[in-house]
């Protein structure tokens, strides 16, 4: 019963995050919403594993966590420096590219 309520609550949370992702005026709203949806999917799988007594699903939830993290890091790197192939110090680089245009 407890797990059922938890699953329904997680689904409602995913719905709310989706609303924010659709409405989100800024890029950061959408990033936070997508990170939230990923995290809630992981929680959904974890709760579902306990609900149906298949504890091997917890490993899958862990892998999802890693993938979600990689995705968010890539998105934030792109937002911050405008490309994915330099190592950080590219706010100057961006400025150069803008100046070149």
């Amino acid at each position: 019963m407890m797990f059922t309520v938890a699953i329904i609550a997680i689904l409602i949370t995913i719905l709310l995050a989706l609303v924010r992702a659709l409405l989100g005026p800024t890029v950061y709203d959408r990033i936070a919403a997508m990170n939230m949806i990923g995290t809630k999917t992981i929680l959904l799988i974890a709760v579902f594993a306990f609900l149906t007594d298949r504890h091997d699903l917890l490993d899958i939830a862990l892998v999802y966590t890693l993938i979600n993290f990689i995705g968010v890091v890539a998105v934030l790197k792109l937002i911050e420096q405008g490309n994915l192939y330099t190592d950080g110090e590219t706010s100057v680089d961006n400025q150069q590219e803008v100046n070149d245009k």
């Binding site: 997508m34 990923g38 999917t41 959904l44 899958i60 999802y64």
Partner: peptide
């Protein structure tokens, strides 16, 4: 961003 959420939800559905 929405594509990423789409994939995550379908993966959850597959699980």
């Amino acid at each position: 961003m929405l594509f990423s959420g789409f994939s995550f939800l379908s993966a959850g559905l597959f699980v």
